[in-house]
């Protein structure tokens, strides 16, 4: 049983991928505990397994071994269908490439987070408007993604991830496609809104400066956390 203050706990996560005749061990026993409202960064070289770990934490992928708890729920025992059903309420995700739906404007993209897990009413619309205001896009709600800059698109993605008041935000290199200044503002935004919403933040990044802004910094090397920086 997890500590009530813990929203995300992984222990002994292992993941292998076949690579030709060999087996590539990407994760070899990762342990991670994230407390409610805590911010954690994960750094590592390309191919070190950061994205694989994030996908497993999000329930998008299954570990070959190990346990995963979403708050008190043993996520590793759930089917992929059950994980999908719970994911939308439990966590939000932010990706490097934003992944906004091009046919929907910014407002509808944020609201899509609520649509996918249930109905949309006045409360959801009000929250969408509030989130867009919070990320500095109150006047840009009716703009399509093609009419927004990269930084603005990522702000919309951050608002969408927060739509369902998740316990955890998993951000996979959210500044990878942005210039340094815009990237800094996005990381500040993520840290700020997660603190306000009391959501934990797991930030995968290459940027040491961004990593240092989180409460705890982890380095993934050879399939396991090498150190707590």
């Amino acid at each position: 049983m997890s500590n009530p203050a813990t929203v995300l706990r992984a222990s002994g996560l292992r993941k292998n991928y076949p690579s030709g005749d060999r087996v590539l061990e990407v994760l070899s026993g990762v342990d991670l505990t994230v407390a409610a409202g805590e911010s954690v960064s994960i750094r590592g070289e390309s191919g070190s397994g950061k994205s694989t770990l994030l996908n497993i934490l999000a329930g998008l992928d299954r570990p070959d071994a190990g346990e995963l708890f979403w708050a008190d729920e043993a996520a590793h025992q759930l089917s992929l269908g059950d994980l999908t059903a719970r994911r939308g309420r439990f966590l939000g995700m932010v990706f490097q490439s934003y992944y906004l739906i091009p046919e929907l404007d910014a407002f509808a993209n944020v609201l899509m987070g609520a649509r996918v897990i249930g109905g949309v009413g006045a409360a959801e619309r009000a929250r969408t408007a509030a989130l867009l205001k919070r990320v500095g896009l109150a006047e840009r709600g009716h703009h399509l993604p093609s009419q927004l800059s990269g930084g603005e698109r990522q702000r919309v993605a951050v608002a969408r991830a927060l739509m369902n008041r998740p316990h955890v935000i998993l951000a996979d290199e959210p500044t990878g496609n942005l210039d340094e200044r815009t990237g800094d503002s996005i990381v500040e935004l993520l840290l700020g809104v997660c603190a306000e919403e009391k959501a934990a933040l797991v930030l995968v990044t290459h940027n040491p400066a961004h990593a240092k802004k989180t409460a705890r910094q982890l380095l993934l090397r050879d399939g396991r956390f090498a150190a707590t920086l």
Binding site: T84, R87, G88, R89, Y99
Partner: peptide, 16 residues
């Protein structure tokens, strides 16, 4: 494809 993946990541079921 990536939008379909996103919908899954947001909690959208395969049948939906």
């Amino acid at each position: 494809t990536r939008e379909i993946g996103l919908l899954g990541a947001m909690g959208g079921r395969a049948r939906s």
